[in-house]
Structure formats: structure tokens, C-alpha cells
Amino acid sequence: MTAWARIAGQLGVTIALMAAVAQLSDWPRYHQIAANTAIIRLSFTHGSNRQAECRRRTPEELAKLPPNMRKPLECPRRRGAVYVEFDLDGQTVYRASLPPSGISGDGPARAYQRFVVPAGPHAIAMRMRDTPRTEGFDYVKSSDVVLAADANLVIDFSTDAQGFVIR
């Protein structure tokens, strides 16, 4: 084998390898959802009220505390769970009691759920309870939406808007 033939062979093998690498860098294509489907994402972070009201400490209790920790009010940090339901076309597809986050349970409850649905019209309804009550809901919203193929519909919760927001 001549030197030039060897070099040509080396280049040929190298280019073939790199061409294969280049090809695999964006092929085959990946479809995460089927054709004519869409995604509804139910996602929010929302903190419910604290589980107990603040309480004024008695003088005896304050005296037992170190001087730098003598706050007159004792406010339990832990929040309650947030209960949420999501209906899609009349069927409840998600129902959860979401605990507060954080080691002390004082962070907001979080939800992030993904639903793959056929494209087209859908009736959606969301309900949330963030108070100690056990019956009924504090926030309710329902809506009819039409989803195009590959649409990404987001259902969020906004404290400012005092309820669910569809984006």
C-alpha cells in the first residue's frame, strides 16, 4: 500500500465515522407525543394557610426563653395540604392532596402533571381547597378549550388572580 493510499484510507475511515456521528446527532427524529395530540400541563405552586393561628405567649413562657428569643407571638410554621382535582371531559383525571414543601412544612405545595390528550375540543374543570375545611372548594374554574395538534396548554394558579389561570 502506498503512503498516499494509506492516507486516503485513514481519511476515508475518519470521515465515514464522523459522518455517522453527525448523522446520529439529529437523526432519527423523536416524537414525544403521537400525531394529532396535545399536552395539558397542570402546574402550580401555592401555599395554603398555616395550620394554626398565631398565639400570644404567656409571661411565664417568655421568661423561660433566652432573652434574644422572647417574641411575644408564637406562630406555627407548618402549612396545611392543598387539595386539588382536575376534570377532563367530565372525568376526574387527577386528584391529590399536596403536602407543603420544606423540612418544616412551611413551603408551598407543588403540582406538575402532564396529560396527553387528543387534539380538538375539551371541557376542563379545576377545583382547589387550601383551607382546613373538608367539604367544598375554595377555588373552582371550568372552561372549554380547543387544542390544536402539538398544543401546550398550561393550567396555573395565581394568587394575584385569586384562582386558576389558563395559559
Partner: peptide, 29 residues
Amino acid sequence: LGLVVVSLWKPALSQGPADLSKVPNGVGL
């Protein structure tokens, strides 16, 4: 040299701007 040849033959391209209102379906991974 191999990188030069492949870069000219099949340049790395973007796959269209991101659009968070749509599902990025059918992407070249």
C-alpha cells in the same frame, strides 16, 4: 480534516425557534 469535511457536508443547524405554546414534537435528538 475529518471535522472540516463533515462540518461542510452537514453543518450543525437549529431546529426552529422555541415556542413554549407548542409541544416540541418531532425533534432531531
